[in-house]
Write a protein that binds this DNA or RNA. Sequence first.
DNA 1: TCCTCTAGCTTGGAC
DNA 2: GTCCAAGGTAGAGGA
Lengths: 261, 261
Amino acid sequence: MRIVVATCAVDYSGRLSAHLPLAPRVLMVKADGSVLVHSDGGSYKPLNWMSPPCTLKVSEPTADQAEQGVTVVWTVSATKTDDKLVVSLHDVVHDSAHELGVDPGLQKDGVEAHLQKLLAEQVELVGTGHTLVRREFPTAIGPVDLMVRVPGRAGAASGASAATGVGGAVEVTVEVDTAATSHRHVAVEIKRRATIDAVEQLTRYLELLNRDPHLAPVRGVLAAQSIAPQARTLATDRGIDCLLLDYDAMRGVDDPDSRLF
Amino acid sequence: MRIVVATCAVDYSGRLSAHLPLAPRVLMVKADGSVLVHSDGGSYKPLNWMSPPCTLKVSEPTADQAEQGVTVVWTVSATKTDDKLVVSLHDVVHDSAHELGVDPGLQKDGVEAHLQKLLAEQVELVGTGHTLVRREFPTAIGPVDLMVRVPGRAGAASGASAATGVGGAVEVTVEVDTAATSHRHVAVEIKRRATIDAVEQLTRYLELLNRDPHLAPVRGVLAAQSIAPQARTLATDRGIDCLLLDYDAMRGVDDPDSRLF
DNA sequence: TCCTCTAGCTTGGAC
DNA sequence: GTCCAAGGTAGAGGA
């Protein structure tokens, strides 16, 4: 890792064009050749960067550039695309290099996968007596987070609602809604934070699942730690139920030893 | 900006829990107090970080920690949430600080807004003789990127297709499709890269717009620099046309002086 | 490899 | 402030 502190101007061209006026900044050159341009604020995201694989070429400034104070020019080119980053360095106040070796990597815990695991273990939150069919229930358009079986519905007529639903633009979910008393399964979509996208996703799953006479009618449940108002509205419109999850409470029920650390 | 190169272990707790084993890394402490932990590879994203506003507290290791080689402990706490980052430093091989000042900021060009501007100027790409009604055409659920008028359709019967379309789950768009010969307007959704989300978004707009007798029937066009295969499939299913945009070619037609640099 | 979805997303803009 | 959409999204995971 090479670290340079210098006054510089930066131009990026590629998927977009961007320009950074002359100012003091920190430049990082990683072992894989990638380059990061950081300012002294903002966030963890660099102002500009080049992702690997790429090559760094160091060159002398032109006479014009030298006259304007440029002492050296870095040209960073992506090897697979035509993205290019040009850094014009003026005063360099620091320049050091360090051997770091390969990082052993990050261990994570607590994301959506954990929510899914917890809700799978506490599936009664979806409905009394409900049992888990499986996590990541496969469909033609991707896996449903949880597929749940409703108790005491083995003999329910799967076609009971066929005559009532079909109608407007959201008829698929109207059908689900009007068949509420004879649901045999529940498809659960789990998000940390649910937006409209999650409702659309679940709607696609339900549309498909409700074509299967072995499953239909399938109720939809959107389960999340937080649900955006527009997502809740759209879900309600489509007869999808919303389930707010309390991560801490669910984790409290869970065996603490099952956590990574 | 303070830059430290040191062997360290890191623990983060907050929205998730994460742990970094002992290894050499680069630590950046920005003027706003934010902290970044970088390895010598990967991407521009740090392995761990703390966003401002936060506070950094430096403390001596406990006797146990000192025995294991820890020389100093950084505790970075978010001020608004209970996020916490604990960095246990062992050998410090570099430690320097630099005054950078406030960055003048990034100038950008070439994103979706520019695509929209270009297509508005070159609206005949949507269809021969088509004219622009307006950009950001307002609807109850948000603005449509471009609303376009089809030539010579003033007298076309808006209900001509009513008897043909209604059928399966996607009948709204089937209706749009079968009415192709009598469209009076075109709603254009513009993306740099179109995914299924874009199709869903345009579908919602079309469903709404086609209720308006002054506009209906409204054809849908998904215009993008690249279109994901599944998005194309879904769009085709729903009678939405796909239009691949060549940004460079469109920019060539455009006045080069209108670009930022 | 391509394609999808998640992310401690981040960030900007509208309301 | 909240909420939503875009990102040079990046990165993981599955087909």
